[in-house]
Simulated assay, not measured.
Amino acid sequence: MFAEKIMVTNVITAQEHELVGDVHAKMNREKLRMLPVIDKQGLVKGLLSTFSIMENIIPDYLISGDLNQISYAPDLGILCKRYEEVIRSPISDMVDTSPLLVGKDESLLSVAAAIASHGKHEYALVVDDNKKLLGVISAGDILNRLKYKTSEVNDA
């Protein structure tokens, strides 16, 4: 089975000029944890995830591991203030510019291995040779397909 047979093609996307708050609202409405970021021609520029947004809300001194060297940790007020700052920023400031890209003719096994080894995100963006977005495959999509195929085999 190839990537194009399992990919979701009606993909909700974002563009680099959009604000974090607007894109986050879109992600919430659609119950998504990530959105591919494309340009006007549909070429992949990167990926924005809730993880990427969170990374930008947490103060740098906490991410760098200096928490043990301070006598206090930020409270909810500080995080809310950072959130208000971040949601007014363009997403271009926090787009992951090296998302997992796969071709439509890659095997399901190859895509599954790539997702498992990529680490940060559980999605593969399916692109053509020019990096135009064709679809998205999630780890859940693969697991659901395997569940369906397993039940087919067991019923035969």
Results as ranks from 00 to 15, higher is better:
G140T: 06
A124Y: 03
N144Q: 13
A156I: 09
S98N: 14
D66L: 06
N144E: 12
L43P: 13
M1Q: 10
K26G: 08
D60L: 15
I91T: 09
I63V: 01
N28E: 05
L47Y: 04
F51G: 11
L125K: 04
L133F: 07
D93P: 03
V153Q: 14
P74I: 02
T150C: 10
L125G: 12
E30S: 13
P99H: 12
P74Q: 15
L79K: 14
D66Q: 04
K131P: 07
V44K: 00
M27S: 03
D39W: 00
A73C: 15
K26D: 02
S138P: 02
R88I: 08
H121G: 08
S71W: 06
N28M: 15
N28V: 04
S151K: 11
E152H: 11
A25T: 13
I12Q: 08
I137M: 00
Y61T: 02
K149H: 08
P36M: 10
Q69M: 11
K149Q: 08
V153T: 05
D96N: 08
S92N: 03
M1W: 15
E152G: 09
R145H: 09
I78W: 07
D66R: 15
L100C: 09
P59F: 01
L79Q: 14
E122V: 07
V8W: 01
T50I: 09
N144C: 04
A124F: 04
I91V: 14
C80T: 03
E152R: 03
A112L: 08
V11A: 00
D128S: 01
G21T: 02
L143F: 09
V11C: 02
S49C: 13
E85W: 12
I87R: 13
A114C: 12
H121A: 07
G77N: 05
L47S: 01
D105S: 14
C80W: 13
K147N: 15
I57R: 04
E84M: 11
L108G: 15
D66S: 10
K104G: 12
H17N: 08
A113D: 07
G103E: 04
S107E: 09
E85C: 13
D141A: 00
E30V: 04
V136W: 01
S110W: 03
M1H: 13
N68I: 10
M54A: 05
N144I: 02
M34V: 03
R29A: 09
K120C: 02
A14I: 05
V11D: 01
S98D: 11
V37P: 00
N130G: 05
I87S: 11
R145S: 10
D39K: 02
T50R: 06
V127E: 04
I58C: 14
S52G: 12
S151L: 11
R82H: 07
M54F: 10
A73V: 12
Y61F: 10
R29N: 06
P74M: 12
K81R: 15
N56L: 03
S89R: 13
D93E: 12
K131R: 12
D66E: 15
E55M: 02
I63N: 07
S64G: 04
A139G: 08
S71Q: 13
D105K: 15
Y61V: 03
L143V: 01
L108C: 07
K104V: 07
N144M: 11
R33K: 06
M94Y: 09
S92C: 10
A112M: 07
A156N: 10
T13G: 01
K31P: 11
I70V: 09
G42T: 12
L143D: 15
T13M: 02
M7N: 00
D129P: 06
I137V: 00
I78F: 10
